[in-house]
Design a protein around this nucleic acid. Structure first.
Length: 258
DNA sequence: ATGGTAGCGCTGCTA
């Protein structure tokens, strides 16, 4: 079973690339973030033509998350589960059961800057994500939380930690909240296969950052122990960041033993 | 290099 995540930075702008990528890579489950579409504009029929069922939680201009699956989609929960607290006004999370694995596609708030109220929103969002997991599942089950976390887990995941002191994506508070999330019973699956630094999943469009090798690893696939036990392979598909009009993120893949 | 690009949607915000 192949599960992938991809922040596409507008599905409207990226649909041709997503279609070609699905045909080439053949994931069983694909989690999308930043579709930037309303639900009625989501191209479900296009994906159905490629063999994928899909569910979308969108709002229009910003945010928007989706799950595509060719191994079934059941028990769909758009937004945070009610038992976790108030609903998120933004469309940043959707959860479904796909092929026996409970999958959440998440787009954690960026935070903007440490003194911005959006940063407090980011911290509270990450705390509620943990309560959401308690509401929809258990660490004893096969469960995957994947998407754009907008947090670089440790200093290997950024080019120059000394230049990022006091910045979002690396601050102690958000890294601690990510650790707390892992403490719920999740494992950073990509990191179990690779330990080296500078294996990024996102590169700023500006200043030639991709070609200069300046990025961050902020797109994560977190899985419970029973998922990690099935892991056979993981990779960041950097080829998808190349060529004409790419997203600023590359897809991250995991393969699980059937 | 305190810059730079991309997307949305039409002026400036978000990332």
């Amino acid at each position: 079973m192949r599960i992938a995540t991809w922040n596409v930075n507008s599905l409207k702008a990226r649909l041709p690339r997503v279609e070609a990528w699905l045909a080439e890579v053949q994931p069983d489950v694909l989690c999308l973030q930043e579709t930037k579409l309303a639900d009625d504009a989501f191209p479900a029929l296009t994906f159905a033509g490629l063999g994928y069922e899909s569910v979308h939680h969108g709002q229009g201009q910003w945010n928007g998350v989706a799950i595509l699956s060719r191994v079934g989609i059941d028990e769909v929960v758009p937004n945070f589960a009610p038992a976790s607290g108030p609903p998120d006004p933004d469309a940043r999370i959707i959860t479904a059961l796909c092929g026996g694995v409970r999958v959440s596609s998440v787009y954690v708030p960026n935070g903007r800057s440490l003194d911005h109220e959006h940063y407090q929103y980011k911290l509270s969002w990450m705390a509620q994500l943990r309560r959401h997991l308690d509401a929809v599942g258990s660490p004893d089950e096969q469960l995957v939380v994947t998407g754009d976390f907008n947090v670089a887990p440790d200093d290997r995941d950024v080019p120059d930690p000394s230049k990022l002191e006091g910045a979002t994506h690396v601050s102690a508070a958000e890294r601690d909240l990510l650790e707390r999330l892992l403490g719920w019973g999740l494992i950073d699956l990509f990191r179990t296969r690779y330990q080296q630094a500078q294996l990024y999943s996102w590169w700023d469009y500006r200043a030639g950052d991709f070609h200069q090798g300046r990025g961050m690893r902020i797109d994560l696939v977190l899985g419970t122990a029973s998922v990690a036990d099935r892991l056979t392979w993981s990779i960041v598909d950097r080829n998808a960041r190349k060529g004409t009009s790419p997203s600023d993120h590359a897809p991250v893949l995991v393969d699980l033993e059937d």
